[in-house]
Write a protein that binds this DNA or RNA. Structure first.
Lengths: 226, 226
DNA sequence: CGAATACTTCGGCCGTCGCCGAACTGTCCA
DNA sequence: TGGACAGTTCGGCGACGGCCGAAGTATTCG
């Protein structure tokens, strides 16, 4: 403990780096060029910023051919970024487009790699009500019923259970002031729901998700009203 | 949502301001002069920094005579600061004194206004095991037994219940990787335990707490082994 | 192999922000 | 009422860090 508070804050404080990190909060890995674009700086400048973020262990990089894809270094980074975002002044909405984006983010978004917003909260409520999830030592466990149902949906529960990160824990949703599900299980569920086409990404580099008609029907069938 | 990430980060990024915020994480209100001292800057410089922190709504101020006492603007600030602190490089312990401080922080500390560290986690475990606390919609509630016992200890449970902030919720403890109790109830409990002399502050402006012999005995009687 | 693309490194310019001493305002106490 | 103390405002200095163009490295493709 008693670590340096200023060093990580300084990394986030620079507007161009903040824009990059914000884009990476979608949970996806983005190429250096894309990040230069979202940050509105030249590629050399972006390169320097990414180098610093790497040094500070806020992002990781994976090289693929002539591309270098950057992503957040882990859920702890996403948690800190979300907490920090809500220290700022309340969003001042200018254009209609911005207003729509804000509403979409409140309804459904990724928080690094799991589902947040109204939909995220509703889904956790449903899974608790139908007892797919049960309380367990500082987090949640999956009941026999829950495991059967989740596996039937194609979700790799045992894979999530053996992963090194926390399996399932509540995460305070800042827009809803209630909890959604976080942890490895949440990531597996969210990835699967997108694969199933229940949710789709609204934009290339954004965090907002759209609930499809298919998804709406399927969630309603599970007893999850949104 | 979609707020500015850079602005609050910039406030925290400055070393002098970070030192001040770190001192305020103890949960106590400190005078401007004391903050200038912990930040190792002149009083004019400290004054400017405090002005910025006020503008950014990270701290609040209360004037008392010729002193102006500053404190964090709320639990959300403390949460963000703790999350941020754990993005930094792991503590590099140089001196024996620093090592002792680090160990003390791991064992018992305030996290803004509630108990964290090994003791905080153990206390939550105990209260759950003896069913003083029960799960309730996205947080915890107090059972009839729990209310009776807490009131017997002199804790103002109903006062905490009517406060505007969250009553009782789990908070991930970064040193323990498990949960301790946060929220208004946690603040009331922690304040009472210090009043009872179970815990004392180790230093004037630090977050570290010392478990007294009295406190050790009392906690053991409650079934809380630390 | 050579051209095209993706990204990084280098060198140098420039603005922002943190810093302090001195002076000013306000509160306490004898 | 005057002196001591807490805190803030003002003015000016200095440096760190962000910025880009040009040049350099690595990978793909014809």
């Amino acid at each position: 403990m008693e670590r340096d508070l200023a060093a990580p804050a300084a990394l986030i404080a620079e507007p161009a780096r903040a824009a990059m990190l914000n884009a990476l909060l979608s949970g996806r890995a983005l190429a250096a060029g894309e990040l230069a674009h979202v940050a509105r700086v030249s590629r050399p400048t972006a390169s320097e910023h990414l180098h610093r973020l790497l040094d500070g262990r806020l992002v990781e990089v994976v090289s693929q051919g002539r591309h270098r894809y950057y992503r957040l270094a882990g859920p702890h980074v996403a948690t800190a970024l979300e907490a920090l975002a809500h220290l700022g002044p309340p969003a001042k909405v200018g254009t209609l487009r911005q207003s729509n984006t804000a509403q979409a983010l409140e309804f459904a978004r990724t928080c690094y790699d799991h589902l947040a917003g109204t939909c995220g909260v509703a889904l956790l409520d449903t899974m608790l009500a139908s007892r797919w999830l049960v309380d367990a030592d500082g987090g949640y466990g999956v009941s026999a019923t829950g495991e059967r149902e989740l596996v039937a949906l194609g979700i790799d529960v045992s894979g999530a259970r053996t992963a090194r990160r926390t399996f399932a824990r509540p995460c305070l949703d800042w827009t809803e002031r209630r909890y959604h599900l976080a942890g490895g299980l949440a990531a597996a569920i969210t990835a699967r729901l997108i694969t199933l086409g229940w949710f789709t990404h609204r934009a290339r580099d954004g965090r907002a998700l759209r609930l499809t008609d298919t998804g709406h029907t399927a969630l309603t069938d599970l007893g999850c009203a949104v």
